[in-house]
Design a protein around this nucleic acid. Structure first.
Lengths: 195, 195
DNA sequence: TATTTTTGATTGACTGATCAATCAATAAAA
DNA sequence: TTTTATTGATTGATCAGTCAATCAAAAATA
């Protein structure tokens, strides 16, 4: 069975498995055994490639934030006007795979983990900054800098808040409704500062 | 040392200790020993009064949501007009003790826990519904029912989102700024649907 | 080509630490 | 004496992390 060049394959499998197990479990209190089983390897192998559980989890956050970033970059490229780019950022935030219950549960778990793990926190801060700057950059083309900052703060908070509320699965809000609410926030605010 | 009638005293001390330890630790992965130590009793006593760790944690959520509820009720009583009542709800959400880093860390941990514990989830759903209905009830006095629903969803999401972003402690937003942002959201939206 | 050596991949079995939970025992009030 | 409060000691389970051993492909050598 042992073939050469398995490392990248196993690393990816383990990171994907970790995200799935964390999402299902709704918490980082998952065992290396569960993750390894899900990836179809032994727990020992997971340790062999990642050194520790913490490292595997950190790598899991990193990889998934990278994927989210890639989605945003692609969506931004496809949009042309600032207003379209703003919509693109919002759309990606709520796109199906991001807004799935297990994904939301996983992100929530990572936010909790960030209270203890400086490295996890760093990654999430990068995400928050990126979202903020994507919003501000495009808003500045549509209104004064001060207003752009304020509207961006509000929009970012609303996006994150819609995630949290989604995590409770009571009165779940549809993807479309979430997008509509955020779009509406931008439109109303842009109109207000202009008119 | 053993005096009679200690049960309520110990229960309160343990619940308070749990909240403090969870807040400091930033996670529910705290030990009964830590909580008991913080409360100045033995771990065995914590089990004696609560039966299990899970029950102690559930009781901790319940008690703290009850306190939050009391604050809101008091603040609502002090306000007279619908608009003032809306401001009261917002003010309480961001009041000092609620917005302290340890408190936010604790809530975050409870939200994560709610993915696994049905009972924890139930309590948080009750909080979400209460916030929503407090907002809707007063908004309905100021605009059409449909708009009230929508604005309430947005405001609730924004409040929760500001909490999450606060938890990362990067570019922390002040209490006043958070209140201003949410107030501004309400004002702008109410103006938009009226004018 | 055939044979040996090396190296990467992989695991089962084990260890040490941690922790929730239990329980028997003690001490003081009623 | 009965009841309530309290704890130290202990247990049983869970898990992260380690390690020595195995297996097979690839590389080196004959």
């Amino acid at each position: 069975m042992p073939k050469i060049g398995m490392e990248p394959v196993r690393r990816k499998a383990l990171v994907d498995a970790a995200m799935r197990v964390i999402g299902d479990h709704g918490s980082l209190a998952v065992t290396m055994s569960e993750i390894a089983k899900q990836a179809g390897v032994s727990p020992a192998l997971a340790h062999h490639y990642f050194g520790s559980k913490e490292q595997l989890l950190i790598e899991t956050v990193r990889v998934h934030l990278q994927r989210l970033r890639d989605s945003v970059v692609t969506a931004l490229r496809a949009a042309t006007t600032p207003r379209e780019k703003l919509s693109a950022v919002i759309r990606v935030s709520f796109q199906a795979d991001q807004f799935a219950p297990e994904t939301i549960a996983a992100w929530l778990a990572f936010y909790a983990e960030a209270q203890r793990s400086e490295e996890t926190r760093r990654f999430l801060v990068i995400y928050a900054r990126r979202l903020h700057s994507n919003l501000v950059a495009n808003l500045k083309a549509l209104c004064a800098a001060g207003d752009a900052e304020r509207i961006a703060e509000g929009a970012a908070a609303m996006i994150d808040g819609l995630y949290i509320r989604q995590s409770l699965r009571s009165a779940p809000i549809s993807t479309e409704a979430s997008i509509a609410l955020t779009e509406d926030y931008l439109t109303t605010n842009l109109d207000a500062v202009k008119g």
